[in-house]
Design a protein around this nucleic acid. Structure first.
Lengths: 197, 197
DNA sequence: TAAACCTGACTGACCAATCAGTCAATACGT
DNA sequence: ACGTATTGACTGATTGGTCAGTCAGGTTTA
C-alpha cells in the first residue's frame, strides 16, 4: 500500500506516536521498524503494509512532527512583545513537560542531522523554517507599526533570534548545561536593548 | 588493544581521516566499520585491533575533531572587533573550502544529535562549548576594557552570538537556504547596534 | 653468521545477531 | 462472502565483533 491519504486515522496516529516514542528512546541511528512496532500494539509487518518502506514512514513522521509544531507555537495574544516572548518560550521550553520537550527537540535535531542525506527531509525542514521566520518577522513588523518596537530590520532581527533558539536547543540536548534557560535570559536583555525603549 | 596512547601516529591519522570521510559520505546512522575501513588502505579488522569497539573509535574521533576545531578558530589579531568578526567568520564559514566546511558541520551536528544517548560524546561537546564561550566573552570583555565596545554583559552577549552561530550552522545543512550567510549579515547589524555606537 | 624466536601490525574468513522487507495464512468488519 | 487489516514465519543482506594465522622486522641464541 502507498503511504498516501488512504491510511486510517487511528492507524496513522498509532504509527506516528510509536515512531516518536521509539525515536526518543533509541535515537535515529538505532531506530528500526521492530522498535517502532514494539512501541505500539501492532507488529512490524503492519507498518510495512501501510507505509511500504521505512523511509516513507519517516517522511510521513517528519511531516506530522512539523505540522504539530506549527499549530501550537504562536501564543494567542494581541500585544507584539507578549506574542514574541511567548513564542520564544514555546520554542525553547515547549508546551508539554520538560522531558517530552527534551525528547521532541532531540528527535528534531536527529532529523535535521539526516537532512543533508535526504532531500525530502530537507524540503520539510526548509518549509517549516520559512514559516516560522515569517511569523516572527511579522510580529516584529507589527510591533514597529504599533510603535511598541524600535524601527529595526525585522528580517535580520528574526534571523538572529531564531538562529539563537535553534542553537540553544542543540546545545541544550548535546551538552550538560542548561542552554535554553541561559539563552532565555540573554534574549530578554537583547530584546530590551534592541527592540524596546 | 586499548584505545590509549599506544596507537602509532600514522595509524591514528589514517583512522581519523577515514572516519571523517566515511561520516561525511554516509552519515552517522549509516556509518559502519566496513565503510570506515573502505576509506583507508586498511581493513576492518585493523581498526578493531587498534580501537576494540566502534564506540571507542568514535569517541576518539570526536576528541580529534573538537581538538582541531579549538586550535584553528581564533584569529591572530589584537583588535577586539576584528578578532570577534574573524572568529564568527571562522565558525560560520570554516577555514577550508566550502564543501569541507559543510561536511565538517554536518559531522558535528550528527554527533551532537547522538549526544543525548552517549555521555562521553556529551562531555566532549560540553567542554568544547565552554571553551569557545570563554574565548568569545573574553574578547568582548577586552573590547569593553579598551573602550572599543559598549559596557554590555559579556556572558549574555557571547551566549546569543554563539547560540545563533550554532543554529545557523544547523539550518545551513538542514535546509535549502544559505543560513550562515544570512546570519553573518544579521550579526553585522546586531554587533553594530549592541556593541558599537 | 645464521638459524631460531618473538612481537606488533594486519588480514580474510567467519559468527551470531539483527536488519528491512516479503508473503501466505488468518482474522475481522460489513 | 469479500475486501481490508493483521500476523508470524521467513529471506537475503548486513551488522559489530572474533579469531587463527600471515607477515615483516628486530632480538636472542648457537
Amino acid at each position: 500500500m502507498c503511504p498516501d491519504e488512504s491510511i486510517p486515522d487511528d492507524v496513522k496516529e498509532k504509527a506516528m506516536k510509536a515512531t516518536f516514542r521509539a525515536l526518543c528512546k533509541h535515537g535515529y541511528a538505532d531506530l528500526t521498524m521492530k522498535k517502532i512496532a514494539d512501541e505500539s500494539d501492532k507488529c512490524k509487518s503492519t507498518f510495512h503494509y501501510h507505509y511500504d518502506t521505512k523511509e516513507k514512514l519517516l517522511v510521513n513522521f517528519i511531516e506530522f512532527l512539523l505540522e504539530g509544531f506549527k499549530d501550537r507555537m504562536v501564543p494567542d495574544t494581541e500585544d507584539p512583545l507578549e506574542k514574541l516572548n511567548g513564542l520564544i518560550d514555546n520554542m525553547l521550553f515547549g508546551l508539554a513537560d520538560e522531558e517530552t520537550t527534551e525528547s521532541f527537540h532531540t528527535a528534531l535535531l536527529e532529523i535535521r542531522s539526516q537532512a543533508p542525506y535526504n532531500e525530502r527531509y530537507r524540503e520539510q525542514i526548509t518549509e517549516n523554517d520559512q514559516y516560522i521566520k515569517k511569523v516572527v518577522s511579522d510580529i516584529i513588523r507589527e510591533g514597529i507599526e504599533k510603535n511598541r518596537f524600535k524601527d529595526v530590520n525585522a528580517e535580520e532581527t528574526a534571523t538572529v533570534i531564531l538562529s539563537a533558539i535553534d542553537g540553544a536547543r542543540a546545545r541544550q540536548i548535546s551538552t550538560n548545561r542548561n542552554a535554553t534557560k541561559e539563552l532565555r535570559s540573554s534574549l530578554d536583555w537583547i530584546i530590551e536593548d534592541l527592540l524596546l525603549e
